[in-house]
Design a protein around this nucleic acid. Sequence first.
DNA 1: ATTAATTATAGCACAAATGCTATAATTAAT
DNA 2: ATTAATTATAGCATTTGTGCTATAATTAAT
Lengths: 94, 94
Amino acid sequence: MKLSAMIPKQKGDRILIFDEEGIKSFAIQLQKIRIKEGFSQSQIAFESGLSLSQIARIETARINPTLSTIFVLAWTLNVPLPDLFNFQLSPKER
Amino acid sequence: MKLSAMIPKQKGDRILIFDEEGIKSFAIQLQKIRIKEGFSQSQIAFESGLSLSQIARIETARINPTLSTIFVLAWTLNVPLPDLFNFQLSPKER
DNA sequence: ATTAATTATAGCACAAATGCTATAATTAAT
DNA sequence: ATTAATTATAGCATTTGTGCTATAATTAAT
């Protein structure tokens, strides 16, 4: 797996190892759709059952969400699953 | 979040908590595409850098893979990301 | 039927996702 | 400018994803 280390900028930050670009693109896409559908993060949290902190962590690309979380997000946002992946990655990654 | 507990059938099995149906659908879709593209699990493992056991665990729906793993799979299989999500879930879930 | 290849399991170690709770920072309303 | 709402951080506990290695089970070749 092509892993990028997310080196901590501040002392105390965790070291996260995952694909930065994809996670970032997903974060942006999610936020875009959430806003378009007129939801606040809290609303998503409430309706999905996910925690508010988790929503924020995903939108700020701090974590690498799991498939089931992604399912729940699509369901809550009322969008088809593939919509959340409707973005381009750099050729190297795809 | 609509969570289904995967109750251990055999003594010693882990208890996994995630959305069974989605994970299962994804597993099937992944295998379908892998076969169609003419890959063995080992080839995917080798070319993706993911472990062979991980590929098997995903295809047998034993785990709830992360987004970065899904990215790597799409990239390795040479399919657009949304293709991996081209399946229908039950109305209750979507 | 044997053998080889492929797929599935298993257990361990470690990193990371998630919920929870609280708080800070930012943005929007008034 | 204050206040309210929203979003971002943080730390902790728990569960789980992932790699690794080995082995079993299944399937394909010969």
